[in-house]
Design a protein around this nucleic acid. Structure first.
Lengths: 340, 340
DNA sequence: TTGAAAGCGGTACCAT
DNA sequence: ATGGTACCGCTTTCAA
């Protein structure tokens, strides 16, 4: 029932010149009116004519042309984060983006999957963002940072396991998580501690530092650490549980709560008493962990508020000369329940 | 220990003109060399000089200038999806994006939070994307679709609960999920069925259609349906469980597996036998549901492959004249375990 | 093989 | 109060 007459397929997109023509004014006037330029007075009748013309043509300004002319953008680039990293991190990211928008930035996620660090940096630089906040999916090198800065980025901020030369680094040290879990277990009298290493590819960035932290903490206190490869599948957990007693472990840090729940169920099915025979600790403090019996001990992770990170971005954009800062983004804290 | 001399803060970004100057050639030549333009022969020594000059200056082309000149982009806009919608949907999204990149599109996520449908469409149109794939966070109106098309978008595709006039709509009908769950419960002999309605704000888009589907299915078969508001918190589930017997329900569809796990635990703690006294069904077929006792019945959701959606985008971009299509994106299928 | 120049769509300075 | 116009960075036709 659509009445729309078939329109010529390549109807060209209206420009400010079209609006000017239709309103019978110059392009300059169109620009003044549509941007409410304060420095210039335009009569009310003219304003109306311009606005009506724009409306009628369905005029939408061309962002690329505008920023080309302006010589800068308000774009904050978030190299795409598509790691499924749990509700905590999602909430943080959401907060961060809203806060940036309130500060009048345009947030754009642009993935760099399949590119190495420096290629990705180049691709990002082509967009001339005013700031780049790299969340660690692609590792930025000092050279990459330099490329971005030379292309006009006033703030380059990395969130990741370690500092990056030249950038403001928000250190999110996953080692703390592993350290925290193992310290807790040792405090509960455990001495032979397994550490689950997820076999899923995308998790390496998280699980390796967690393991390293666990190893370091154990080394301090003379405990034994055993890496335990395991996939997020029932069968994999069962296979691990089946050889559990031969491993002679009295505790396990299971990478996170989901792996912990999976492994704990498999251990129980194998007749292994948790926590008596083996303690289990997860991480992330998921709600679901509290529903298990025994209730799952975990490592709670507190992230800085997204708003604070947005403010840092804004401050650095306004004053790029300020010394790079290196904050801790994250703190870890053991939560003792019943499984340890 | 950084040797970098303090550089002038506003060192201007190198342009192709700078490269040309340094290499002693014209800007045209620079363009030819750096783009490997086939239609023109440039001598090898010249090529080398140009490349070296570009390298030395850290030249990165300006994407906005390029697309302004070209008159079009290869940008596919994904209005930002930051609803934490579970691993299924994340995987689908990841697949989709990689597939688009393989087809040589630039995928950009650009949020429209806090804008209404038409404002958002305008904001997106400013970027002149060649395609927009709206994943339903912001509801596109027919007018919004028109704005996008008039600004040059060759494909406008919506994924959501219903078709949108003028766009290619991939219908992802959450009603199926509710219908599937309730039909399953009725088939198991249940007649008074509660439907959990999450109180979390961002979930309304999903839970309302699921409820509607449940209601319709129940109406067909003469079963009773009761909406049950509940937050994703232990206390909320406990409160609901405490008044459970007064509700006189013999089954509950708990929105998804997470809410189901939460509620099932609360019911059990209240001494209510699952499934004898009340059956419980979730949705999403999470791995964790299989670990509970009784094992959680659920509704498995199959999404179309991301690659297929990417191919649709590409096809529509190449031939925008083709009739809008309206596919089903999703199918739901009951998985009977022990809780129902 | 290379260069000169036009033009993409806006913005803002300088005239009028 | 408005118009003319130069310019942002890049590509591409045409001429040399």
């Amino acid at each position: 029932m659509s009445q729309t007459p078939e329109q010529p397929l390549e109807r060209s997109v209206p420009t400010s010149a079209d609006v000017a023509r239709l309103a019978g004014v110059s392009r300059a006037t169109v620009s003044y009116v549509l941007n409410n330029t304060a420095a210039v007075r335009i009569s009310e009748p003219t304003r109306r004519r311009v606005r009506e013309a724009a409306e009628e043509l369905g005029y939408v300004p061309h962002a690329a042309a505008r920023s080309l002319r302006a010589g800068h953008t308000r774009m904050v680039l978030l190299p795409g984060t598509h790691i499924p990293v749990g509700p905590l991190y999602s909430r943080f990211l959401g907060e961060f983006q809203s806060a940036l928008r309130r500060l009048d930035y345009t947030v754009v996620q642009y993935g760099g999957i399949g590119l190495d660090g420096d290629e990705a940096a180049r691709a990002w630089a082509e967009l001339r963002p005013v700031a780049v906040v790299s969340l660690g999916e692609v590792t930025l090198t000092p050279h990459g940072v330099d490329v971005l800065k030379r292309s006009g980025a006033r703030a380059v901020i990395t969130l990741g396991p370690r500092r990056v030369e030249g950038a403001h680094s928000l250190v999110m040290d996953q080692r703390e998580v592993g350290g925290c879990a193992v310290t807790h277990l040792i405090g509960r009298g455990r001495r032979s501690i397994g550490v689950v290493m997820p076999e899923e590819h995308g998790l390496r960035m998280f699980c390796e530092p967690r393991f390293e932290g666990a190893r370091n903490a154990a080394a301090c206190k003379g405990a034994r650490i055993e890496p335990l490869p395991m996939a997020y599948e029932v069968e994999s957990a069962q296979a691990l549980a089946a050889r559990w007693r031969s491993l002679r472990l009295d505790a396990v840090f299971a990478y996170n709560d989901e792996y912990a729940m999976l492994l704990m169920r498999a251990l129980q099915d194998e007749g292994i008493d948790v926590p008596r025979e083996s303690a289990v600790v997860g991480a992330d403090d998921l709600l679901l962990g509290r529903l298990l019996r025994p209730r799952l001990s975990t490592v709670a992770i507190d992230l800085v508020a997204g708003r604070r990170l947005a403010e840092l971005v804004d401050r650095v954009v306004r004053d790029p000369g300020s010394e790079p800062e290196h904050h801790d983004l994250m703190t870890a804290r053991p939560v003792h329940r019943e499984s340890s």
